[in-house]
Design a binder for these strands. Structure first.
Lengths: 260, 260
DNA sequence: CGCCTGATTTGATCCATGTCAACTCCCGCG
DNA sequence: CGCGGGAGTTGACATGGATCAAATCAGGCG
């Protein structure tokens, strides 16, 4: 039923020449902010960052658990993952979703322990980057060091924006923003930006947006009635992209004025 | 009226020997995670990070504006600052407060542009660390590099937790958490952990916690009625620290059960 | 000292979202 | 092919915090 689109599959065959493909795929974030910026020598360093390639996980399996000692960063190779943050009071919250090319474990650098679970939402694979090794390489390859800082800083910015979103925005704005961002992220990976397969459950989305599953469901329905998206189980089609981003950002003061 | 306590003044006289004091104060975060970890040579590097010392700002002045190109990190020397994040939709939100010893500008590393204003809440001063210089030093002094990553990662974690808080927690939990954290931060700086002078307005607090000023005010009153704190203008006294942290964390499910 | 202006508090009311509950849909399995 | 169970949807109702409005307070200034 949702066969026409499958973001679980990478746009190029990553298994053919893994060393090379990692440079183009998994480690994109770490390595290729500005393509061509690397010398062959740099690339040698980068390739050496990866210890184990394409570790396989089945849907539902944990890549790591909250509380586990932090030793590696992981680059998502295939599939999708959710990060489940365990709050200081024990409450769980889905802090983010990761797809091919994303880095997992960055939030653990601070205290050498994973603050969150990483759970596979689909069968998938990851590459392993021993962090000690990354640090050492960063010390020698300035670009890697800079890029590491940048990745952290970017994630920081994202969480900042995210905090704003959770605090201020309405359910519709949050969901629209969520879809909008997913669309952008998929597009950046070569997938359709209008036809999204959401590998996570409504409950996961709800948790991520700090809403209830009921509200998420209602808001999906609402966006559908307004002709912005079409929903069919796990697949969402963005019908009116402009309308979506309108609903995502909205005016500075989203009062009842905007409902007329 | 609030003379007995003045967190605006540093616990030691920082102006006496600024080079040295910076190592103990402003750059604490960057430099002294584990005291004694530095060789004299390391320290020389560290000292050289600071370009201008103790730049002065008057209350209300901006250290930098959102959109300004990012060139420096700043270590707060004296006083207090708020960071005002400009969301993608133009809405403003106070993303954090910084006190002596805190670093400002970390969230700008990602895109070389400040995403937020930094505004002085009191007269104060900062030290300037040209980021290019920090990067170069990090490349030579492994500890600095590691510490830079750690600072970023820690801030990341904080924002993560914070997002959770904003999304899930009640007004009372948020305010209690806020006071609790401030108390800890002040304590770490050698100030009283029970008698806090809040240099920011209620509106700032409200914005930071994603509440309205009215709700913040009401919640202060409520906590006071419950005998947890005593409020007098800008000064808050924590009367029942245990009660406060109880209200900050709360049970996994803060349902009506907890109201009986 | 008393005024003036902005900050804070307090009160009354409204609304978005949570909560609880029932129903439907989908998918794997016997 | 029908069954069962979990995920998703929908409805009715409750409520925390927002909103609007007004009173009070604080602090600088004539």
């Amino acid at each position: 039923m949702n066969a026409p689109f499958d973001p679980g599959r990478a746009p190029v065959d990553l298994r053919a020449a893994e060393k090379v493909s990692c440079l183009r795929c998994c480690l994109r974030e770490l390595c290729a902010p500005h393509p061509g910026e690397f010398s062959p020598a740099d690339k040698a360093f980068l390739r050496s960052l990866v210890k184990e390639q394409n570790i396989r996980l089945r849907r539902g399996q944990n890549l790591f658990h909250a509380g586990d000692p932090f030793r590696n960063l992981y680059a998502v190779h295939t599939g999708a993952f959710k990060s489940v943050l365990i709050g200081s009071d024990g409450r769980e919250l889905v802090s983010g979703f990761s797809f091919a090319g994303d880095m997992l474990g960055l939030d653990s650098i601070g205290d050498r322990r994973h603050p969150s679970h990483a759970v596979a939402l689909d069968d998938g694979g990851v590459c392993v980057l021993p962090y000690s090794h990354v640090e050492k390489t960063a010390a020698r390859v300035a670009l890697v060091q800079r890029q590491l800082s940048r990745m952290l800083a970017r994630e920081l910015r994202q969480h900042q924006e995210f905090a704003v979103a959770l605090g201020i925005r309405s359910a519709q704005e949050r969901l629209a923003t969520f879809l909008f961002n997913l669309s952008r992220r998929f597009a950046g990976r070569g997938f359709s930006s209008t036809r999204l397969r959401l590998p996570m459950s409504r409950t996961d989305i709800a948790s991520h947006l700090a809403l209830t599953a009921e509200t998420v469901s209602r808001t999906f329905t609402q966006l559908e009635r307004e002709g912005v998206i079409r929903v069919s189980a796990k697949t969402v089609e963005i019908v009116d992209s402009a309308g979506l981003s309108e609903r995502a950002n909205l005016a500075p003061v989203p009062l009842q004025a905007s409902r007329a």
